[in-house]
Each structure stands twice: as C-alpha cells, then as structure tokens.
Simulated assay, not measured.
Amino acid sequence: MKTKQKFLSLIMIIVSCTTVFAQDDPLQSALLGFKGGANFATISSRNLEDPSFRSDFYVGLAIEAMLTDKFGFQVEAIYSRQGLKINQQLSKRKEIVRLDYIQIPILAKAYIIEGFNIQGGLQFGFKVDESSPVTFPLENGVDFNIDTIRSFDFQLTSGIEYKFKNGFFMQARYSYGFSEIVDDSEAHNSVFSTGIGFMFY
C-alpha cells in the first residue's frame, strides 16, 4: 500500500507541474505523457562473478517542457523493475534478484532533426521493493542480500527518442548507478531500456 501511495503522489506532482509549466510564459510548450517498455538490467561489479541481465518492465509518466523549438527538459516518474540473474555454483542454476525502484529522471532534451531528439541527465532511484532467494558473498567478502541493499540510487542516464507528429514516441535509454547498491561492494545498477509512449497535446 505504501508503494502505491508513493507512486500516486508522484503522479499528482507531475500533473500539478504540467499545469504550472503550461501557464509559464518562457516555455514554448509543456506536454504530459505516459510511457512503458522493457528493462534489461544487471549489476556491474568487478567483485561479482558472471552476472546476467534480467528482463522486466517499466511504466510511468513524463513531462516534456520546451524552452525553445529545439531545446528543453523532461521530468519523469517511473516504476522500474530491475535487478539481475546470478549463477549459483552449488545449484548450477541462475537465481533472480529483483529490485523495484521509483525512478525520477531529470533530463535535458535536444531535438536534432524534426522528431528525433537526444536526452541526458540525472536520475534518482528510490527502492520500494526487493526479492532475493539467496544470500551470496562478493569476491571482496561483502554479503549481497536484501538486508544490505541501499534504499537510494543516484544515476546518470542518456538516450534517444523519436516522436511522431501525433504524439506517439519510441525511446531507448541507458542508466548507470554511481551509488553502490550495497556499501563497500563496488556494485552498481546498469540498465538498458526500450519502450514506447504517447504525449498529449
């Protein structure tokens, strides 16, 4: 219930911001949209042997606020299912570690040609749920389990997007976490994502 309340609160904040932006004279336009797609997530760490990508989904809302015809920014609130698959030497199978975040990207956005744009900026991740069937030690002796995973993740993210004139868009993005997800682990979130969405005019 707490997770749902947090997500609904973020939706209300985005809708409120859209109303304010739309009334702000310096902006050329302000659009509200929704998006969703697939994540291909893993954990990047030299202390973690043979991590694999875990595929899952993300869904959320976005504001596009343009300062000029070519340049502006985009703010989003996304529910993102991440984590990794890890090989277990004893059982000889891959175990799934699931990490769910509310991600808040704040991005600069530049249109290169009509419809096609590049994006880049900061992303703030707030862990709302996790699941791991096992505890496994990293090579430096740190235990990786759901009790040691940090609740906040600071990331850089960038991507490309093509938006059609009717508001429909396609997007691909990569995010890398600069925060260690477990203290002293040198383990960082690494996520490729691709998806579609629609901006309302």
Rank of each mutant, 00 (worst) to 15 (best):
161 E>F: 02
162 Y>K: 08
162 Y>N: 06
162 Y>C: 08
162 Y>V: 12
162 Y>E: 08
163 K>P: 00
163 K>C: 09
164 F>C: 14
164 F>N: 13
164 F>D: 14
164 F>E: 13
164 F>A: 15
164 F>K: 15
164 F>S: 14
165 K>T: 15
165 K>I: 12
165 K>Y: 03
166 N>R: 08
166 N>K: 11
166 N>T: 11
167 G>F: 04
167 G>H: 10
167 G>V: 11
167 G>Q: 07
167 G>T: 07
168 F>P: 05
168 F>M: 11
169 F>T: 04
169 F>L: 14
170 M>Y: 11
170 M>P: 01
170 M>T: 12
170 M>W: 12
170 M>Q: 09
170 M>N: 07
170 M>E: 09
170 M>K: 05
170 M>F: 13
171 Q>E: 14
171 Q>H: 10
172 A>K: 01
172 A>M: 12
172 A>N: 04
172 A>C: 14
173 R>A: 13
173 R>S: 14
173 R>L: 12
173 R>Q: 14
174 Y>V: 09
174 Y>I: 10
174 Y>T: 08
174 Y>R: 04
175 S>K: 01
175 S>V: 07
175 S>G: 14
175 S>Q: 03
176 Y>T: 02
176 Y>N: 04
176 Y>E: 01
176 Y>C: 06
176 Y>V: 01
177 G>V: 03
177 G>C: 10
178 F>C: 12
178 F>H: 08
178 F>A: 11
178 F>L: 14
178 F>W: 13
178 F>V: 11
180 E>L: 06
180 E>G: 03
180 E>F: 04
180 E>T: 13
182 V>K: 00
182 V>C: 02
183 D>Q: 15
183 D>M: 15
183 D>T: 15
183 D>I: 15
183 D>G: 14
184 D>F: 12
184 D>Q: 13
184 D>C: 05
185 S>M: 03
185 S>R: 00
185 S>F: 05
186 E>S: 07
186 E>W: 05
186 E>P: 00
187 A>Y: 01
187 A>C: 04
187 A>V: 06
187 A>E: 01
188 H>L: 04
188 H>C: 06
188 H>P: 03
188 H>S: 05
188 H>M: 02
188 H>Q: 04
188 H>D: 03
188 H>G: 05
188 H>W: 07
189 N>S: 12
189 N>P: 08
189 N>Q: 09
189 N>W: 01
189 N>Y: 01
189 N>I: 07
190 S>W: 00
190 S>Y: 00
190 S>G: 08
191 V>F: 08
191 V>S: 01
192 F>L: 12
192 F>N: 02
192 F>D: 02
192 F>M: 10
192 F>T: 03
193 S>F: 09
193 S>G: 13
193 S>V: 11
193 S>I: 08
194 T>R: 09
194 T>V: 15
194 T>Y: 14
194 T>K: 05
195 G>E: 01
195 G>D: 02
195 G>V: 10
196 I>D: 04
196 I>R: 09
197 G>R: 01
197 G>F: 02
197 G>M: 10
197 G>L: 06
198 F>M: 13
198 F>H: 09
198 F>V: 12
199 M>I: 11
199 M>G: 05
199 M>A: 14
199 M>Y: 15
